[in-house]
């Protein structure tokens, strides 16, 4: 499954069940471009086990403010709607797998 783009309208519904890894990013952020291919890979490798999603903080100002995003990329893992872990800055694939496992 491809990476899902979240908006304020579908965010709460998508994160409410199972494991959802959300990448808060922006088009002008270099490190965000680095992890984009990793997110794509994870969405294939973890198809059916975890949802891999992105929030464009320039478009989704409310979500960025709700999660107090102060550095991008910020990666937040939700398990059944609850935050289970956070990471700041570009992270290795290994670390992201740890977050969703």
């Amino acid at each position: 499954m491809a990476v899902i783009h979240l908006t304020k309208d579908n965010f709460d519904e998508v994160i409410s069940k199972g494991t959802v890894l959300v990448d808060f990013w922006a088009a002008w952020c270099g490190p965000c471009q680095m992890i984009a291919p990793i997110m794509e890979e994870l969405s294939d490798e973890y198809d059916g086990k975890a949802v891999i999603a992105k929030v464009d903080i320039d478009r989704e100002v409310e979500l960025a403010s709700r999660f107090k995003i102060r550095l991008i990329p910020t990666i937040i893992c939700f398990k059944d709607g609850e935050i289970s872990s956070k990471a700041y800055g570009a992270e290795s694939k290994e670390h992201m797998i740890e977050m969703i496992s």
């Binding site: 922006a26 002008w28 270099g30 320039d58 995003i69 102060r70 991008i72 700041y88």
Partner: peptide, 14 residues
Amino acid sequence: GRGVSYCATCDGML
């Protein structure tokens, strides 16, 4: 990442 940043051009917009 919680207010400390090393890169003005990366995180300034926030």
